[in-house]
Design a protein around this nucleic acid. Structure first.
Lengths: 253, 253
DNA sequence: CGATGACTTGACTGCTGTCAACGTGCGTGG
DNA sequence: CCACGCACGTTGACAGCAGTCAAGTCATCG
């Protein structure tokens, strides 16, 4: 199982352990290590830099930063966004633990969007050049990367379907179903979870006005499909929600 | 330059040469071979299967097909689409020469969308398993794949921005700017091109009713920004169009 | 030349954005 | 401990953009 010796652990100032190895990470079934033999995992571990937690509102990178690394979310959550010419912000994605941020910069050499923590977030920084070099020795590594990217593309396509045609209800429903599935896959409750993003972010992401989002939450609650208190959501009738959302339910669907 | 011996050419029934090697393909600067040394290119050539042209309306693959290959478009164009639960079709993308179809299936083992030719289309079939094996010997191959996928993800994010917030005018403008850029990058005219997709497909893709698309073309023409005759589009004022589109102009932006 | 499908144009309705005011919770500081 | 302020969220009124329904025009092909 390749458990590292405890003495290698280096607790950070606030007590978080920055040296948890991939082999010990509860997310390794979802993350980059999938399909990597444990002896190779040690090599992967060596190039990964555990960063100290990012505080809510802080940036992991901003638009224009040179692309050096991709980042695996270990805890907390982030959003990515771009600025339009006229200065409006456009949210392009939310990232939960086990998801990887920064893939879309590989082709450009610099980040075209910014990533900001929605709440205190732990991330593993994975220097891309070293990762590519490692990939030459461990063939399963680039394969796994392709798989992860492919899934993310697929998710994006689902979201595209979502935004392309559907009404406001359907958008919000599909968003919630997607979140529910992702939380479920990570071992959290799929029926009760906290929204780390604000109503503004949700509306921005889904292409809806904040007021519309607020009204929709109200309506879904009236219909007995869910309960909302502030940012805590409890799904009372996931089936109804799924039906509302249509087929485009979200990741890994 | 690795030109294949003419005798190896196998003209198909309708005269198209099915054995054009990557090295001779006018699209190799955009396609998978980017950054691949010519001696390695021969190996890539060996696993690629040039298929006979696909007729307009025919499927390259349908939803549920086992994933075996990705496909590089050599000529013509395709659309990918999914079916929603209630039987509606949702277009998820258009693919021009030099673009690669099927990446989003890598992570799933089967195709989650269907691909259909919008006009007679030539494609190169690239068996994925063999490509991955080849990638173990040619490290630049998986690197290039990651780059291509990254760019496609980036494009998807731009499209997301588009559908997320903007008005109908902005969506259509951005769509046209994107097409224009892609045609330009392929050596075709960036200011005058044929839409291979129907108004229905455009509307479907952009999340607009056909009638709205039609009216918008009319309005853009009134404003002197472009000329439309059937499916032939001529951009009279690309700058205006770009301004209308906002920042989300499309691929490789 | 007629049939068919693609596209356009018009009238009307309704969803959703905008503007505005108000409520609520949380953190700060007295 | 309480009061205040601020950010976030909710609710209401209204208007406009875009969807829907319907009819009509145009091009292509047999």
């Amino acid at each position: 199982m390749n458990r590292p010796h405890p003495s290698r652990a280096e607790p950070s100032a606030d007590g978080a352990d920055l040296r948890v190895a991939c082999g010990d990470c509860s997310l390794n079934a979802l993350c980059l290590p999938v399909g990597i033999a444990s002896e190779d995992l040690a090599e992967l571990d060596q190039i990964i830099r555990r960063r100290r937690p990012i505080a809510r509102g802080d940036h992991l990178f901003v638009c224009g930063d040179r692309f050096r690394s991709i980042y695996a979310v270990r805890s907390g959550s982030l959003k990515t966004y771009r600025m339009t010419e006229d200065g409006r912000e456009q949210v392009t994605g939310f990232f939960l633990p086990g998801e990887i941020v920064g893939f879309d910069a590989i082709g450009h050499g610099e980040h075209r969007c910014a990533a900001r923590a929605l709440e205190t977030a732990g991330v593993c920084e994975i220097p891309f050049e070293e990762l590519e070099m490692l990939g030459e020795r461990i063939p399963s590594l680039p394969k796994q990367m392709l798989r992860i990217m492919s899934r993310e593309m697929h998710d994006d396509h689902l979201l595209l379907m979502l935004l392309g045609k559907r009404t406001a209800d359907e958008r919000l429903a599909a968003f919630l179903v997607s979140l529910s599935q992702r939380f479920g896959a990570r071992g959290y409750s799929a029926s009760e979870f906290n929204l780390s993003m604000s109503r503004v972010d949700i509306g921005n992401y889904l292409g809806l006005a904040v007021e519309t989002v607020s009204r929709l939450f109200g309506r879904l609650q009236e219909q007995g499909i869910l309960e909302v208190r502030h940012r805590l959501v409890r799904l009372l009738s996931p089936a109804h929600l799924r039906a509302l959302a249509g087929v485009a339910t979200g990741p890994y669907n």
